[in-house]
């Protein structure tokens, strides 16, 4: 019932995009991701531990590239060069799949996006044929620039990564939505289901989250809650809310009353 979302060359049935970090184990990861109903699932690229546990289960055994649209991220990269290298490795790892989540994060306790390095990496990646979904600040000017560079989705933060504070600046997010024609997906900051619904009611095209599900007491149940929250928010946005009024307006007819 919710309209599909087109991101670059992909069509998503679910507007909830989820991460795979911070889960207790791969079993819980698989169950929570399945319960979320997400099509797009993020993953990280890291050095293989050499000489240790050669038969350790791999994330890709649980989150199959045949079932999900994998979105490798560049988390942990602090420069454009490292982010570009990570994306090239991810493309090779996933047999030529070119959809990536670009994030170049500052070395500060805010984990705020380094937009200078992000812009540089985005230019290189788009030129190399990647479809770039880009994590950025909620600065409308930077969001416009990232769209002009050719990113397929712009993903402003709702609040700092892992903070669970909910949308802190809905006015900036609204401004970004008004200015861009590519999908705008809130990435980071959601804490609970109502935060996700607020983002969707605002008109966001989707929400990407990880910690809100993974650090819930029951991640599988929270994944289900988020799925419903995203659908509810989107449906409410599409339906169009009633106008706000300052005074009461009776729901039952005020004529035909008995005397």
């Amino acid at each position: 019932m919710v309209t599909e979302l087109k991101v670059g060359s992909y069509t998503l049935k679910s507007r909830l995009l989820v991460g795979t970090g911070k889960y207790k184990d791969l079993v819980e990861t698989g169950e929570a991701i399945a319960a979320s109903g997400a099509d797009v699932v993020t993953m990280a690229v890291r050095r293989t531990n050499l000489g240790q546990h050669p038969n350790e289960p791999n994330l890709l055994d649980v989150i199959s590239p045949d079932r999900y649209i994998l979105l490798p991220n560049t988390a942990g990269c602090h420069t454009a060069d490292d982010a570009v290298r990570t994306c090239r490795l991810a493309r090779e790892l996933l047999d030529g799949h070119n959809l990536v989540k670009l994030e170049v994060i500052s070395k500060s306790r805010t984990l705020y996006p380094d937009v200078v390095e992000t812009l540089a990496a985005a230019r290189t990646l788009v030129a190399e044929g990647f479809e770039v979904m880009v994590y950025t600040s909620d600065d409308p000017l930077i969001a416009i620039e990232l769209e002009q560079i050719g990113c397929v989705a712009v993903m402003p933060l709702g609040a700092p990564i892992g903070s669970g504070l909910g949308l802190q600046n809905p006015y900036n997010i609204r401004e970004i939505l008004d200015q861009l024609s590519v999908p705008v997906i809130v990435d980071a900051g959601v804490g609970t289901a109502s935060d996700a619904t607020v983002a969707m009611e605002l008109g966001c095209d989707g929400v990407l989250m990880n910690t809100a599900i993974a650090e819930a007491r029951d991640p599988v149940k929270m994944a289900h809650a988020m799925r419903l929250a995203i659908d509810s928010g989107r449906l409410a946005f599409e339906a169009g809310r009633m106008p706000r009024k300052r005074y009461a307006d009776a729901s039952s007819p005020e004529t035909g009353l008995i005397e």
Partner: peptide, 10 residues
């Protein structure tokens, strides 16, 4: 050489 694999991430 850099040898990498996929792990959980957000």
């Amino acid at each position: 050489l850099e040898i990498v694999h996929a792990i959980g991430g957000g």
